[in-house]
């Protein structure tokens, strides 16, 4: 019993969030263990993105307790942020920069990264040949891939991905599923919102209705 509690790295309890006088969720509780992927489902407007933004600390309009390794996240924000990789609706790719320049900055915020590692990560995500083109000349799916390229580079324990599959083609979906499997294999945690049927073993689903 004790042991299983130790493995629960991210724990949410009694979460309440209201927006525009409409209750999005009430008494929401779940926990994520090492090596677990939590897929968050729900109809449009059910608060999937809001939930992820609350977990990241980008949205503070909630009540309840969120704890990371047994401590409330407010008390260990530095530690939490250094183990978090977040990809939101807005993918965080500057359109005037090239994929290389984008990743150099965004990964550099977390850890030291070599250009060689960035090149191989971009190649892995199928962007070989686009490394030096400005991102506004890339398609939406390719920009999504640029943003996802920081996942192979990341050492983060927790991945929070908001609708990462929307603009991807079949190839891209498969690539991301492989990345998620690898991440879980290393004992990582992931929270993903998507309507896509994920082909990943050990998947847990949270339905927001």
């Amino acid at each position: 019993m004790e042991e299983s509690r130790d493995l629960e790295i991210l724990k949410v309890s009694q979460l309440f969030c209201e927006r525009d006088e409409r209750i999005l969720f009430k008494g929401l509780a779940f926990s994520v263990r090492e090596g677990q992927i939590l897929q968050i489902k729900g109809s449009n407007g059910s608060g999937k993105t809001t939930l992820l933004r609350i977990l990241c600390g980008l949205n503070s309009g909630y009540q309840g307790l969120i704890s990371w390794r047994g401590k409330p996240i407010g008390e260990c924000l530095d530690e939490f942020y250094s183990s978090l990789t977040y990809i939101g609706h807005r993918v965080g790719v500057s359109k005037v920069l090239t994929p290389i320049e984008n990743l150099r900055w965004v990964s550099g915020l977390h850890h030291q990264v070599t250009d060689q590692a960035i090149y191989s990560s971009l190649q892995k995500m199928g962007l070989k040949g686009f490394e030096e083109s400005q991102c506004f000349s890339l398609s939406a799916g390719q920009q999504q891939r640029v943003s996802l390229s920081k996942l192979p580079l990341s050492r983060s324990k927790l991945w929070i991905l908001d609708e990462p599959f929307t603009t991807l083609d079949a190839d891209g979906i498969e690539l991301l599923e492989i990345l998620l499997c690898e991440h879980v294999g290393r004992g990582g945690l992931a929270l993903v919102t998507t309507h896509h049927q994920l082909a990943i073993p050990g998947l847990t689903i949270l339905d927001l209705g």
Partner: peptide
């Protein structure tokens, strides 16, 4: 504004470095 539009601002806020310096 551009960073807000493309989501880079969120990445900046989620860094573990003191936001003051960034």
């Amino acid at each position: 504004s551009a960073d807000f539009e493309d989501g880079s601002l969120e990445q900046l806020l989620l860094s573990h470095h003191p936001l003051y310096f960034l």
